[in-house]
């Protein structure tokens, strides 16, 4: 097992009466991509900013690369790259000037043009920040965080506002970083992002971790029932002879099963025998989104 880069035990944070984080434990190892998923107000930014050293914790133990981030050691800041949920950039500097400015704060910066290429801002190199679109500014945020060649990267909703192409590109960057042995801690609202990028996902709701694990296994997802759906035309001989079949009023049939292979076999046999078609046949497994909605109580933001 590789070295533990982030270790959090019993972390709590209150803002006055509001308990934003209520005793969470996390452990992230070198080379991992770890995603913190959760609805608005769940405590993601609070957690990340405690790890980054911006906020003081109310209780709990936190180690980041062996440091207590609350002490804001420079030696720690030299090894960490940060994309905040929302931050500004000087509007009157150009993209290149900006990346160069931040790169030199670090002891071993990356090549400035290479970083700009990496986030796809080559065409905008000499454009002033004020002339960039929202998504382009966000890419510049990522470039700034990469400029110091950090071994640990914090990304708080890094791809919010990205077009689909830019998101794929950002994922590619994160995968490359991981393959170089860098550690990435990200928060996101996008299930597909967590699923595509993360080795491990923790779902946070109302300040508590409600599930944690590899995205494929989250919340017992791999054990959950498969859903088979289709429509039958009139002409079908009675309801399908499989256990658990439910016929909806609009003619839609739903079957939940733990043995999808044999159930499907029976259903197709039934249709072949009757000489009709299973219209719009679908076989789906619960998506990460389903699991997530289940886990977080389907709420739209915990306020």
């Amino acid at each position: 097992m590789s070295e533990v880069v982030i270790e959090v035990v019993g972390l709590r944070k209150s803002y006055g009466d509001v308990e934003a984080v209520r005793g969470i434990d996390l452990r992230v190892r070198r080379g991992e991509v770890f995603a913190l998923l959760g609805p608005n107000g769940a405590g993601k930014t609070t957690t990340v900013e405690i790890l980054e050293g911006y906020r003081e914790r109310t209780a709990g133990e936190v180690r980041v690369l062996g440091h207590d981030p609350a002490r804001r050691d420079r030696a720690l800041r030299e090894r960490v790259g940060i994309v905040l949920q929302s931050t500004g950039i000087d509007p009157y500097l150009t993209v290149r000037e900006t990346v160069e400015l931040y790169a030199r704060y670090f002891p071993h910066p990356r090549d400035v043009d290479e970083v700009i290429d990496l986030v796809g801002l080559t065409d905008k190199r000499d454009a002033r920040v004020i002339r960039l679109s929202g998504g382009q500014q966000r890419r510049l945020d990522v470039a700034i965080a990469l400029a110091g060649d950090p071994e640990l990267l914090f990304l708080d909703e890094p791809t919010t506002g990205f077009d689909p192409g830019a998101r794929r590109n950002a994922w590619e960057i994160v995968r490359n970083l991981a393959s170089l042995g860098k550690t990435v801690f990200l928060t996101t609202h996008y299930m597909d992002e967590a699923e595509n990028l993360a080795n491990r996902v923790a779902v946070i709701a109302r300040g508590e971790i409600v599930a944690e694990g590899p995205p494929g296994l989250l919340g017992g997802r791999h054990l959950a029932e498969t859903l088979i759906r289709f429509r039958v035309r009139s002409g079908a001989s009675g309801p399908p002879a499989v256990p658990g079949a439910v016929v909806r009023s609009n003619g839609l049939v739903e079957v939940r099963t733990e043995t999808p292979t044999s159930t499907l076999h029976e259903l197709t046999g039934w249709a072949m025998a009757g000489g009709f078609e299973l219209d719009g046949l679908e076989v789906t497994r619960p998506t990460l989104e389903d699991v997530y909605l289940e886990l977080t109580g389907g709420e739209a933001g915990a306020e």
């Binding site: 980054e52 050293g53 911006y54 420079r74 800041r77 030299e78 960490v80 940060i82 905040l84 929302s86 931050t87 500004g88 950039i89 000087d90 931040y102 704060y105 670090f106 002891p107 700034i144 110091g148």
Partner: peptide, 17 residues
Amino acid sequence: YQRDSGILKRVRGTPLP
């Protein structure tokens, strides 16, 4: 202005004193 637009916060996260 720099404080409210988050520029100071960003700088604060780098090694620059």
